[in-house]
């Protein structure tokens, strides 16, 4: 499998049916290590469903979702892993996961895929700091000796909590919310909530960050800040980002790769510039058939 040089996530023949409705139909694409990939398409195209399949909230009707940690060579074991029926295979060079076999919380914990939600899902009654500590739950849980040592007040937990707070402080600094660390998350303005949700996802130490419409409802200034934040995440942490977005300025500016969905079917896949000029993509966004694009563009004077 030489073609998968630095692929991080491989979506193959993903199909999701709800009763008679086919929300995603035979979708295949890849996300490369250290890339920002965008999943775009008109409303109802099935983008969020793809996210829910990748993050384990839905079990796909068909298809394979492979994710690797470590060296690209672990991809060689993909078929063997599929046949074995196991969820993951641990290699000396890394680990290979089949996400469609994992429940949601293990996708986050073991495969380290983090996500945000279209309609922000913070813990509104907990403080900003607490939100970021909950994200580090599994590490802290281990440090607290699964609660036992923590109740007895062992210092190992105190140390771990301090480092968790430091990490949270770093992220709050980065997203400009340090001053509001002790305020309830539900009190933050909308744009800050979006940033906090991304920071919270980052606190889980992901290899892949899935963002569902991160720029929705942001003003142009906040959008620009978001772009910087996402580029920093990609460049400093070498984390791959998969995002769903309607704001084309965000998509075109920061994506390395764009996948376009329409009615659950992939209609384009490539670099932002190539996708932007694709007739089928334009047709899908205008809601017309592909061959009419020229005439419609002429009509509206493009």
């Amino acid at each position: 499998m030489a073609e998968a040089i630095d692929t991080l996530l491989r979506v193959e023949h993903l199909t999701m049916r709800f009763g008679g409705l086919v929300a995603v139909d035979d979708l295949s694409f890849e996300v490369r290590q250290g890339h920002i990939a965008a999943l775009i398409g008109p409303n109802g195209a099935g983008k969020t469903t793809v996210f829910n399949c990748i993050t384990g909230f839905y079990k796909p009707s068909e298809g394979r979702l492979g994710l690797r940690h470590g060296k690209p060579a672990v991809w060689d074991a993909l078929d063997a892993l599929t046949d074995s029926g196991a969820r993951r295979r641990i290699h000396p060079n890394g680990t290979l996961f089949l996400l469609e076999r994992m429940p949601d919380y293990l996708v986050a914990r073991q495969a380290r895929v983090a996500r945000t939600f279209q309609n922000i899902r913070l813990f509104p009654g907990m403080t900003v700091l607490e939100n970021l500590l909950v994200a580090q739950h599994n590490r802290l849980m281990f440090a607290s000796g699964y609660t036992l040592l923590g109740v007895l007040g062992f210092p190992s937990y105190t140390r771990a909590e301090r480092s968790a707070i430091d990490k949270a402080r770093d992220w709050l600094n980065r997203i400009g919310l340090l001053a509001r660390a002790d305020d309830p998350a539900g009190d933050l303005p909308y744009g800050a909530q979006r940033r906090l949700e991304i920071a919270r996802a980052m606190c889980t130490d992901p290899v892949l960050l899935c963002l569902d419409e991160p720029a929705a409802g942001l003003n142009p200034h906040e959008s620009a800040e978001l772009n910087e934040l996402l580029l920093a995440i990609r460049d400093e942490f070498a984390i791959s980002v998969l995002l769903i977005e309607h704001d084309m300025t965000v998509v075109m500016e920061i994506s390395d790769h764009v996948v376009v969905l329409d009615y659950g079917v992939k209609i384009a896949d490539g670099a932002p510039d190539a996708v932007r000029n694709d007739d089928k993509v334009i047709a899908a966004y205008l809601g017309i058939a592909g061959e009419d694009v020229q005439s419609v563009e002429a009509e509206v004077g493009l």
């Binding site: 919380y105 899902r121 009654g125 599994n138 607290s144």
Partner: peptide, 22 residues
């Protein structure tokens, strides 16, 4: 402790908890 914070997080939003690996 993390378990207590997870309880409260669960009360606040269960789906978000699962997305954080809890």
């Amino acid at each position: 402790l993390p378990v207590g914070r997870a309880w409260e997080a669960l009360r606040e939003d269960e789906i978000a908890c699962r997305s954080l690996g809890i």
